Simulated assay, not measured.
Amino acid sequence: MLKRNIAALILTIVSLCLLYPGLTKPILQVVISAELPIIGKTTFYEQTQSILQTVDTLYHTNNKFVAILIFLFSVIIPLTKGVIILGVLLIKKFSLKAKLYRFVFIIGKWSMADVFVVGVFMAFLSTQSNSSIEANLLEGFNYFAFYCLLSLLGIQMTTLEKPEPDA
């Protein structure tokens, strides 16, 4: 069990390190253009944003509810889960570990980080069917996707060791 928890600790630390660039680096670029006679290819719209920039844009364009939901489920809950899992792996007191572990599974059901990654990927794929719209997944997507995978793996590998009663 100790080896599993060491692996879980490493995975959790690495996942938290990936979360920051996953939130701050550009995740998706969308370009809308058309082939016009005489002029040639003309770009009408181009936007590249990170997750945090998207939250900021939504917030400042009166989409506050959506911005808050994305921020809560893709930033706050993943950060909270990671910090609590670190606590579970580093705290010695079993009763506190068990409570924290249960809490992670409760909030884990509300985490939409993995759903967010799938949503971005689906948006990317859906734009590929239209020649006027070009979408490119950028490095932020990779960081965030790897954060999701390593975080989930770290949580799955975490085990609780109940202390043996004194003889």
Rank of each mutant, 00 (worst) to 15 (best):
M1K: 13
M1N: 15
I6M: 11
A7L: 15
A8M: 10
L9P: 05
I10V: 12
L16H: 06
L16S: 05
C17K: 05
L18S: 01
P21Q: 08
P21M: 10
G22A: 07
L23H: 04
T24H: 06
K25A: 09
K25P: 00
I27K: 07
I27A: 08
I27L: 12
Q29T: 10
Q29Y: 04
E35Q: 15
P37Y: 09
P37H: 05
I38W: 03
T42P: 00
T42Y: 14
Q47T: 02
Q47P: 00
T48N: 14
Q49H: 08
I51E: 02
I51G: 03
Q53W: 03
L58D: 01
L58S: 00
L58G: 02
L58P: 04
Y59W: 04
T61C: 02
N63E: 00
K64H: 12
F65T: 10
L69A: 14
L69E: 11
L72D: 13
F73I: 12
S74E: 12
S74C: 07
V75G: 06
I77T: 13
P78T: 12
P78V: 10
L79A: 11
T80M: 14
K81D: 10
I84V: 14
I85V: 15
K92V: 08
L96T: 09
K97E: 15
K97L: 03
K99D: 10
K99Y: 04
R102D: 07
R102S: 11
F103K: 06
V104C: 07
G108Y: 06
A113Y: 08
A113C: 03
D114E: 15
V115Q: 10
F116T: 00
V120C: 13
M122D: 10
M122L: 15
A123R: 11
A123I: 13
T127R: 07
N130W: 04
S131Q: 12
S132P: 00
E134R: 08
A135E: 10
A135M: 07
N136K: 12
L137E: 07
L137C: 10
G140W: 02
F141R: 07
N142R: 06
N142G: 07
N142T: 14
Y143S: 09
F146H: 08
Y147T: 11
C148M: 08
C148L: 02
L149C: 06
L150W: 11
S151C: 08
S151K: 01
G154L: 13
I155W: 05
Q156C: 12
T158Y: 11
T159S: 13
E161S: 09
P163L: 01
E164T: 00
E164D: 02
E164F: 02
A167N: 04
